[in-house]
Simulated assay, not measured.
Amino acid sequence: MNETVTKEEEAYRQGIIKSFRNKVPSHKITSESLRLGIILAIIGGFLDAYTFISRGGVFANAETGNMVLLALGITNGNYKNALMAAIQILFFIIGVLVTEGIRDFSSRRYNGYDKAEKLILIIEATVLFIIGFIPESVPDIFVTSTIAFVSSVQISSFRRLVDSPYSTTMCTGNLRTASQSAYLAIVKKDTEAFTRAIRYSLIILAFLIGAAVGGGLTFFIGVKSIWLCSLLLVLSKIIYTIDEHRFKK
């Protein structure tokens, strides 16, 4: 009996290793790759730390909080706060509309979304680079609303991690999926779920690293620290070029 259990456990372990090797690194679409997801998650965490420390103590990536502030501002008669929250929500919506317009054009013109995704990375990098020149004396709403636009563009463009939906700028859904997958892997011996749990855990870890690096750099460098995000987005564009060459081969 013990020998049978040992063999089953060994088979399960081998299945996990094989599944991890085959599925975690592999991808056929660059926008759904784990390595791109890790870079974008680092940027997502960085931007939250950046806006919280240097741009008014807000999280520009999370519009749920702005909706709460909008509702509270209207209820309490604090219309200034309500207006500030509404502006960020508006810029987030504009980001979604711009992204869908670019994706629709790319789909009709180039019969695919990859051109749109590469263009979106360039737009993000350019906007964040410009933000680095804006001094702290400028009202925070101009920066936070622009970052809300960038966050919206990123969320709308990169929505799948290999075979599952995810977010590169928020961790709530990722944490839920990672926890569910870990449960299935442990209790149901599901190797697919184990692979998924690893992928989502890496995305969450990348977000935390991005927030830590963003907080540290913003303290020491100030508003120009956001240029690191532009550099990472350029790296993401290079990944697309490398994949194009590899897939052609």
Rank of each mutant, 00 (worst) to 15 (best):
L161D: 14
G214V: 12
L184H: 10
Y12K: 09
K118W: 08
I102Y: 00
N61P: 09
N111W: 05
A116V: 02
K224D: 00
G112A: 03
D163V: 15
H245S: 14
K249Q: 15
G44V: 02
K224S: 06
F129L: 10
K28A: 13
F194Y: 04
I134Y: 09
L175K: 01
K80M: 07
L217I: 09
T51N: 01
S201C: 14
I38M: 03
N61C: 11
E244F: 12
G56Q: 09
T51S: 07
F247L: 04
I17W: 06
I16H: 03
G57E: 10
D114Q: 15
L97W: 15
S167C: 14
V150C: 09
I141F: 08
I134P: 01
V187F: 13
T146L: 06
E244G: 11
L161W: 04
S164P: 02
P135C: 07
L47W: 05
R159Q: 05
G210N: 13
F52N: 11
I74E: 05
F20N: 07
A62F: 15
S225T: 04
S106F: 05
G101L: 01
V138I: 11
L119N: 05
M84P: 03
T144K: 01
E117D: 15
Q180G: 12
E63V: 12
A197T: 06
L235F: 04
K118G: 08
Q14Y: 10
R21M: 04
G15H: 07
L119V: 08
T169E: 10
L69F: 13
I141S: 01
G56M: 03
I221S: 02
G73W: 00
S19M: 15
G112R: 05
A148C: 08
S181W: 00
T75G: 15
S145I: 07
V187P: 05
S31A: 06
K224G: 10
S54N: 11
I102Q: 03
D104S: 08
E32T: 11
I147M: 09
F52E: 09
I226C: 12
N22Q: 11
Y110A: 07
R160Q: 14
F133I: 02
A211C: 08
G132V: 04
I39W: 00
T172W: 13
I74W: 03
S179A: 12
V234D: 06
G56N: 13
L40N: 05
L97V: 14
N2L: 05
I38H: 01
A182Y: 10
R196I: 15
L233K: 00
S26G: 13
N61S: 13
F105T: 07
P139S: 14
Q88K: 09
I87A: 00
K28Y: 10
R199V: 03
E3A: 08
F142E: 03
V68K: 10
A60R: 01
L83Y: 02
E63W: 02
H27K: 01
F142Y: 15
T126W: 08
Y166T: 07
A125H: 05
G95V: 13
G65H: 01
G44A: 00
G15Y: 13
A49Q: 03
R109E: 13
L208D: 06
V58R: 01
P25F: 02
S54L: 12
D114H: 14
A185W: 06
A212V: 06
